[in-house]
Design a protein around this nucleic acid. Structure first.
Lengths: 200, 200
DNA sequence: TTAAAAAGTTAATCTAGTTTAACATTATTT
DNA sequence: AAATAATGTTAAACTAGATTAACTTTTTAA
């Protein structure tokens, strides 16, 4: 039973096992609640203005989470590759319209926790509450540090940090999206890269 | 028993009751683990380079959490007043040296969860794990939105947002700290305020 | 295999916000 | 009440990064 989904979401099970150990019963319950879905490149998992119904774990592929401001400019908050999460936590917990879009940059397979079933899961598998608490703690800590980096580092240093911190991501996405993630224009990132070449 | 601390940390108990309902036994257990401490204006709750041992709930007073960069510049991440939290989550969960300072801007009373006792609390009162998960979810969502605002809004608009969102905080702290929180210089904030006066 | 679309580069001009430095005002301490 | 420290203001000169626009390279699709 659930054999097919179990194979597909194996990376999620491995990931969870880094935090908590599930019994077979718990694992079966989890499998009955977690959804698997495959998206094509360019498809939206979430759109600005919609309510975020899912917390998504990336099994395979790559997504970007971004906000489009009043001037039409796109601001990328997050790239999510294998073993990372994507969702608008604010919209998910309040069930209010989201400020963010999540779009697939490659063919992407997700393990999805639906808002309607996550409470049941927490109640029936308290370990999962522990698991999510820890995952969110990590994400929150990373987010705080990013705010400070954005204040204290120059665009050049932020780029260097990004390169060293996420070398795998840089190879999978166009440069103009890196610029957006760093909060600068593609033209300026181009300038920075040229300068870094000259430095060496 | 615990009568004294119960009185002192009453605001924390009220706050928790917005999320979960504790039995009397659970409350007593909580009281036996939570610390109460009063700090004077100017005292540090946490210093950059130290390991963050506490998650602190502000019962009364006001703190700032900030990072000092290599050039000696101070970057304020967070002001915490009554019913809000302060801690370097990153350092707390990894028990690695912190990048942040937490300093009291007024005489401040804190309810303190020590790293050594929080695991026990989670185990003995699973509801508290639920409580903290929800608190952190909210903080994480706020942090993500702040990153986007910092990218998409001008300094002027960020200040207007701050004013409307945290009118009480603005009245309690010097203007140059607001500037630091917004990621701009005090001189430029001064300019912005003058311009806003002229606008009306 | 070629056209079209998407992504990246370059350089000139411009601007939001910084730096510096001098001065003004408000709190705090004696 | 005076002295000192802390906070806030103003203005001129400066700079990191944006904008605009023309161009090149790479990728995708017909």
């Amino acid at each position: 039973m659930h054999q097919m989904i179990e194979n597909k979401i194996q990376p999620l099970l491995n990931y969870i096992s880094q935090y908590v150990e599930l019994t077979d019963t718990e694992k079966q319950l989890l499998l009955s609640k977690v959804l698997y879905r495959k998206y094509l490149k360019g498809q939206y998992v979430l759109q600005q203005g919609d309510i975020c119904k899912y917390e998504c774990f990336v099994l395979k592929g790559c997504t970007k989470m971004f906000h489009v401001d009043e001037t039409g400019q796109e601001h990328i908050l997050l790239f999510s590759i294998e073993d990372w999460w994507t969702a608008d936590m604010g919209s998910f917990i309040t069930q209010a319209p989201s400020d963010f879009n999540v779009m697939c940059l490659e063919t992407t397979e997700l393990a999805i926790f639906h808002h309607d079933s996550i409470e049941t899961l927490y109640k029936e598998i308290p370990k999962l509450e522990r698991f999510f608490r820890q995952v969110i703690e990590k994400a929150f800590a990373a987010s705080q540090k990013r705010i400070v980096r954005n204040f204290s580092l120059s665009a050049k240093d932020r780029y260097i940090y990004f390169k060293t911190q996420y070398p795998l991501i840089e190879q999978r996405i166009p440069q103009y999206m890196v610029a957006s993630y760093l909060g600068i224009t593609k033209e300026f990132l181009s300038k920075i890269k040229k300068q870094l070449l000259l430095d060496n």
